[in-house]
Each structure stands twice: as C-alpha cells, then as structure tokens.
Design a protein around this nucleic acid. Sequence first.
RNA 1: GCGGGUGUAGCUCAGUUGGUUAGAGCGUCUGAUUGUGGCUCAGAAGGUCGUGGGUUCAAAUCCCAUCACUCGCCCCA
Length: 424
Amino acid sequence: MTYQSIKGFRDILPDESARWQWMEGIIHALMHRYGCGEVRLPIVEATDLFSRGVGQGTDIVGKEMYTFLDRSVPPESLTLRPELTASAARAYVQHSIAQAQQLARWYYIGPMFRYEQPQAGRYRQFHQFGMEIYGSPHPEADAEVILAGADLLGALGIRNYRLRINSLGEPDERTAYRTELLSYLREHEAELSPESVRRMEQNPLRVLDSKREQDVAATAGAPRMSDFLGEESRVHFEATLALVREAGIEPVIDHRLVRGLDYYTRTAFEFQGMDLGAQDALGGGGRYDRLIEEVGGKPAPSVGFSFGMERLLIAAEAAGALPAPAPEIDAYVIGLDDASRRWAMGAAGRLRSHGIAAECDLLRRSLKAQMRDANRKGARCAVIVGESELAAREAQVKNLGAGEQKSVPFDELPEAVAAIVNAG
RNA sequence: GCGGGUGUAGCUCAGUUGGUUAGAGCGUCUGAUUGUGGCUCAGAAGGUCGUGGGUUCAAAUCCCAUCACUCGCCCCA
C-alpha cells in the first residue's frame, strides 16, 4: 500500500455513507421544522477570526488548529475551521443580518479540523451539525436550542444520554468567581494533579472538569459558580431550566460543567452519551452574548449548540436505531447476446426515466451471473431478453421475491416493473 | 505531547515449545443439462505474514528499530 489517508482522516465508503445520508436527512427535516435556514460557510477563514472568536486560552487555539500561510504577498495566515460558531458569527456580521431581521435561526453541517491524537470518536477531520439563534437574550431561546438538541437525539433513536447544564454567568460575575476559585485552588495546590496546577493560573475554571479522581476530590469543596450569579443571571437560568423541564426533559445541574470555549456566557450545556468511549460528548452548546461583538459586530445575543456527527452515529448504532440497508436497485435488465444487451441498456434508461432504479450488466457476464448479481443487489425484479424476446418484442419479467415470471410487451415494461417494485 | 494494546487473504481471525508447499469462516469468481437468482455441493483465485535490520542450520513465531492502526490521559464533537 503506497498511499494511505493521513492520520485522523478517513474515507466514508458507500456502505457507510448510507448512514450519513440517513442522519443528514433527519437533521435537515428537523431544522426545517424549527424554521432554521442552512448556512454553508467556508472551510478556511483568517486565523485571527478563530483565535479571537474561540478564545486565546483554549486548547483549540493553543494547539489544535491547522494553520498555514497562503501564497499572497505578504502571506496571510489562514486556518481550517476547528468549529463553526465563530465563522457563523462572522457571516452574521458581514451580511448585516441584524439589520434585516431581529431574530435569525441558522444551522450548519460540515467538516471541522483539529490536530489532536485520534481515538474512539475523535478524528482530526470530523463533522458537526450546529444550530445558532441570534437576536434573543431571553431564556426561551436557550430552551429552544436545548429542546432542538433533545429532539434530534430522539429522532435518531438515541435515548441513553443525559443533559448536563450549568450557568457560567455574566463576565463580571465569572471574574469574581474565578478569583475566589483561584484562591481556593492555591490553598489546595498540593492535592491537585500537576496538569491542573499548571492550568489553574491560566484558566482556573478548567480545573473543574478534569476527569482525574485526584482533581475531583481536591475540588469537592470548591466554591460554586451558582453562588456568584447575579439576580438577572439566576432568573435567566431558572427560567431556562423551567422551560426545559416543561418539555419533559430533566437536566442534571452540574456545577463543574465549564466547557472549553471562552465565549460562553450564562447557559452552558452538554449532551453526554452513555454508550460512547472516553469521548462521550455527543454535543454541547450554550449562550454567547459577547461573541458577535468580539468579531466586530454590534452586540447581539446568541445561543447555539453543535453535535459531533461521528458520535451521533456511534450512539445511534448502539441504540440499534440505524436503518436496515436498502436494496441497491429496483430492477436488473439482462441481455443475453450482443443485440439484446444493446436493448437492455436502452430499456434500463427508459425505466430510470420512470423513476425506477435500474441496472444492467457491464461485464458481459452469463445469464446466471447476471441473475446472481441482481439477487445480491436486492433487485425486486429481473427483466430478461434474448433473441426470441427481441423478435417477439416481449420481455421476460421475473419477480425475484415471488419467483414468478411472465411475458410483458416492451411497451408495457415500465408499468409492469413498477407494479412489482411498488408492491414490495 | 504522554502511556497501554494490536499488525497474518477483501473482511473476521487461527497458526501448538522457532522446523517442509502459511490455514479456516465469510466474501469474490467458476461450475453442478441448453437461457434463470437465493439454499446446497464441488472447485478456483487471492497473502512481500506492516516495514527494515538482527539472532539462528532454520523466523509469521525470538530481539531491536520504525511505521500504521487502536484504546486511554489531556481536551473536546
């Protein structure tokens, strides 16, 4: 094998892409029901957009971006998108969406790129589906987004998950909390893991979502963000929770939920899959009221989420929700000699124009081999034509499910085939 | 960036304490009356044993290196 796809990048072959098409169909239909329009955004953006939008202190910006210089003079630093929230915000500002409409509902689907060590459910090129709502500062928008996420999981047959939620407050509230947390962490520095000690000065909140038992124990008595929320933030959080509960979903309030992106304000949530490996976040999101401003627009509140599509497929498979593979074709048109093979190609074309998935042999194979092929591909019927059929202008049409075969005049072929196909 | 595991046919895997032409199942192809699929039966094709060194009379098997894949830490989707 001389060439191989590079580490963390992979091919999705036809058997697997059928699953992707299934999932994408569900997503598009769901988003249509939520009144969301799809945005298709560039794969590449100015590096600066991500470092500003995602946040300097994040792992994504710090060590995971695919960044390169292009050929312009002087060279420009570009980056393969590691996520799409910043790009969407850029597009929202660039196209003055806020001027045209007070509220905007967007969604996106596509590949993202992060340079990390691949493992179960984590790739360097992976795919996200995300939803963004711009313009509403109210908890209804937070709830709308969360419920859409839950709706998606339901539509994919995924039930084994939990919704964790927290409020990270307004920037000044978070700053006050951060100071308190940091002093707590300093007092307990000896009990923390070396990684957390290193991280705590730069971003103390992150210490909270360390998985190490050592860190979990050491931070058990740490101050909680919820005690630092102002009145408005508290009311907003409570209202969001109430709306979510009213829809029949019971979130787990998790004081340690911080999430790795700097732009969150107030609501942060995560759908945690229970059938995944160590990478168990199916999706996550929250509110980011400062982001639009951060990328140069007039302030506009926004909430959104993103889901990892590879992980959704893993979870859907674990739930046994994946659809059975569909037959590759409806009808297989078989010719026996040169003249009838020519006829078969034309007949297949006529069937296709009637909306029937039709195929004929391209390998000049024997009748038996063609029949085998038809069967393997799940064809409902075979159309067989040889010398005598050509002369009589009648084809043998065999129902491969029932095993019955009859003569059908060429003119009536599409109807006869359709009858068999639709009967199944 | 740091740990653990695994690399044998297209796929899933056997391969006994080193010992002849490296095996199975599935899949693929062909055939079992002339122009008829599935089930069954018979046969065939298909492998530099990840790669490169080393030890040995002899290496898929032992040693070293390297690469790839994989699981975990970290972080996230």
